[in-house]
Structure formats: structure tokens, C-alpha cells
Amino acid sequence: MTTQLSPALAAGAASPVDSIETKRPKGRGRTFRPRNVWTRVALNSIAAIVIACSVFPVYWMVNMSFTPPQKIISREPAFFPVEFTWKNYVTAWTREAAPGQTDFVHGLGASIGVALAVVVVCALFAFLASIALARFAFKGRWVFIISVLIVQMVPGEAMMYTTFNMLDSWQLVNTLFGLFLVHLASVVPFTIWTLRGFVAGVPADLEEAAQIDGCTKAQAFWKVTFPLLAPGLVSTGIFAFIQSWNEFTMALLLLQGYNLTLPPWLNSFQSATEATNWGAVMAGSTLIALPVVIFFLFVQGRMVGGLVSGAVKG
């Protein structure tokens, strides 16, 4: 359920693109730029190959999405969208995935609805829990922390049918609310864990100082601590959104007909056997990938850190 990005995301150091440069302490990890011209040429060529390999599939998707269908079904693929067209997007946007199944627009609505609900509720739940963990000393704190770590690792795939039956007994199969519950439970542990780090990172002394200056405890929290937590809430929120947006297994199992979210929509759309319209499938894929790519660029600075912050220090 939780796919490739999970615990890595959110919270923490190291932007792969820029902030590493500015933040690195002096004398550590300076890049070793080889002086020999030929070595540099060789390294740059390898870099160029790496760039080409990483970008090509994404480029191919976009390229195909702008190529007219009759040109896609061709023995000599067009490497550039010479006969540029928006038609695939129109098709993807309006046509049902398969007869009796949802179209893109409704899938989009369902996906956004579920993901936003997950983001809001998850942020609230995890925020409360992380305050309890970071600001209070109480019996059972340890037990809860370890439970969160363990729960985070429970594979949802293993018990998909148990979950299915449970939701079925509550009449929640084939409802977006059921899917929302599943997604929520899968992102909350990680979000608690990450936010706890953020809350702990804001020194309680700051709040006390505000209280000495005449704030009430609640005011001190809302005016001092909360604004400092905003970046943490944003990046965990984006993480939760991406998780829910990409989640495929349970959406495939739980949803049918006109209730599909985008991943099962794309799955039906691509496997509609007779004459799959590949241009439209690629247009659909592009549209699904777009928000995630944008979000990734937003939080890229915080993406690696979560994991690294624990492992690298010292």
C-alpha cells in the first residue's frame, strides 16, 4: 500500500538540488572535481546518459499523449509529436474507462476528494498525537511510540481481504469513505512519527518565554509553536496526498463502476481490450502524474531528510 516514497518523504534535511550546497558545514564533503579534462568529459557523458535514461520514459509518455492515435499505432514510432494534437486529452477526459465505468473527470473528483479528506483528517490526528508524544511525559509513551513504528510496517497488502470483509460488514465496500478510511490508517503512523520530530524540534523554552511575556499557554502554542510547525504540516500533508493519490491495490479491490478513483480508472482504461486508445491512455497517465510531479518539486528539499536525519548525524 505504502509505496516507494514512504518514510523517506517529508521532514528533514538535504535538498538534492540546492540546499545541500548552502547548508553543508565548511570543510566537509566538498565535491571532488577531477582536474583531468578527459575524466571530466567521461563523467559528464555518463551524467548525460543518466539524464537521458531517467527522462526518456517520462518524455515518451508526454510525446505519445500529443501524437494522434493513428500515428501511435505505427511500426516506426515518432520521436517528436510532429502532428501535434490535444485530441487525446479530450478523449481521456471525457470517455468512460470501460462501458459502465467512470470517466476521468469523476475519477479526478473522487481522487481529489479522498486525498484531501485524508490530508486534513490525517494532519489533525497526527498533530494531536505528536503533541502528546513530544510535549508530555506519561506512562505508556514508549509503548505507543513502538506501536506506531510497528503499525507503520504492517503490510496492508497481506490483509486486503480481511480489510475488505470488515468494510463489507459496515456496508463500506465500493464507497469512497471506505477507501478514505484505509488510506487514512496507512498514512497516520508515518505522519505521527514525522510530526513528532518537528514538534520536538521547537524548543518548549520558546513557549515558556512567550508565557513569561504574558501569553496564556494556548496563546503561546498557537502564536509561537504552531507557525514553526507549518512546514512540517505542509510536507507531511503533501506526503499523505501523494500516498492516497497513487494508492492502487485497495482502490482496485474496493471500488467498482462509477466510483473509481484515478489509479483504477487508468487500469481499466489501459486494459479495455478492443482497440485501447494509447494516445488517450498516455494523456491520462500524464494528467495523473502531473500533480505528483509538481508536489515533488515543491517538497524536494524535504524528501530525503526524514530518513537521513536519523542516520547521518554525527
Binding site: V17, S54, P57, N246, P263, N267, S285, V293
Partner: peptide, 11 residues
């Protein structure tokens, strides 16, 4: 690399 990482696995 970020582009490859960001692609939804299904897409």
C-alpha cells in the same frame, strides 16, 4: 532523477 521518482508507479 526527481522526475523518475515522482512518476506514479501505475502510470
Amino acid at each position: 532523477l526527481l522526475l523518475a521518482w515522482a512518476m506514479p508507479p501505475l502510470a
